[in-house]
């Protein structure tokens, strides 16, 4: 009988098979538990918020201004402020974002300048949001003398979400098959004609779902608005872009920093409202994407 010589340099350590199989099974459960802990964290978070705030969420809460008395407090000013900011940010972001994406994908050469702009956009996407708030404070609020207004907030938010919008729009443009463009060029179309009549109509649905997702990020962002708006007790809604304002997450933050326990419950009612707004925006984005994907296939 010959004994099997064991090679110490074997790629797979030759401990006995039983142990290796046991280790395999144990680690499957460890990996699965990573996923499950993440999901459990999400569910616990949602449960905490809903249990704390559900009973406070009623029509009175949505249509009242904030108050020093928990029973009378409502989120109306912040809700309208968020809608103002969302609308204005969309108006600024959509043309600039799509314009930049179209320029980079269809007009700019593949040279060093284009690459530099691309790297720059990727870098901007990683800048902390509070830095954008400081940029907005120095440039829009003080230098351009806009004050702590909706317009200053919306412009700041535009700069913040622009990189995301540009990158999403570029992806949508890249998804348009090259053969479509070639066919149009072969008919003698100019670049702009190709973009206007072939690329954009094809890419718009993809762009829209990306843009809605970016704007939903703007709705939940509080740090830059905290810097721009600062004041957090408002009993009026903005009537024009020069007015002062607050937004949903900032109002929630304000309530959380108050000492009375009831305000904590009110904050979670505000969170539920914020999550509902976000959920519906994401729903619209997913709906657009699905409809568009089916059309493609």
């Amino acid at each position: 009988m010959t004994t099997v010589e064991r090679n110490p340099k074997q790629a797979v350590p030759s401990r006995d098979l039983g142990f290796r199989k046991w280790r395999d099974r144990v680690f499957v459960w460890l990996f699965i538990s990573s996923v499950l802990i993440g999901i459990a964290g999400l569910l616990t978070l949602l449960a905490t918020v809903f249990l704390d705030g559900w009973s406070w969420l009623d029509w009175q809460f949505i249509t009242s201004y904030s108050s020093r008395k928990p029973k009378d407090a409502g989120i109306f000013a912040a809700l309208i402020g968020s809608l103002w900011m969302l609308g204005m940010t969309a108006v600024f972001t959509i043309p600039i974002g799509i314009g930049t994406a179209v320029y980079l994908e269809e007009f700019a050469g593949r040279g060093r300048v284009t690459r530099l702009i691309q790297i720059n956009i990727a870098n901007l996407a990683g800048v902390p949001s509070i830095i954008y708030g400081m940029l907005g404070l120095a440039v829009f609020v003080y230098f351009l003398n806009m004050g702590r207004s909706v317009a200053a907030g919306a412009l700041t938010m535009t700069l913040l979400v622009l990189p995301v919008v540009i990158i999403a729009s570029q992806e949508a443009i890249k998804a348009v098959p090259k053969s479509y463009r070639d066919a149009a060029y072969a008919l003698g179309a100019t670049r702009w004609q190709v973009v206007k009549t072939v690329v954009l109509p094809q890419a718009v649905p993809g762009m829209m779902s990306g843009i809605i997702l970016a704007l939903s990020r703007a709705i939940g962002e509080s740090a830059p608005i905290l810097i721009i708006s600062s004041l957090v007790f408002l009993t009026f809604v903005p009537h024009n872009p020069g007015d002062r304002f607050t937004v949903l997450p900032l109002q929630i933050f304000t309530w959380m920093s108050l000492p009375q326990a009831d305000f904590k419950a009110i904050a979670s009612a505000g969170i539920i409202l914020l999550l509902i707004v976000l959920l519906s925006m994401n729903g619209v984005a997913i709906f657009i994407r699905n409809k568009y994907q089916r059309k493609r296939e």
Partner: peptide
């Protein structure tokens, strides 16, 4: 899992403090 990345940070703050 990716829903976690879309939840506003102020909500995470609330979660940390109250749970």
């Amino acid at each position: 899992i990716e829903i976690l990345a879309g939840i506003p940070t102020v909500v995470y703050g609330y979660f940390a403090l109250s749970f």
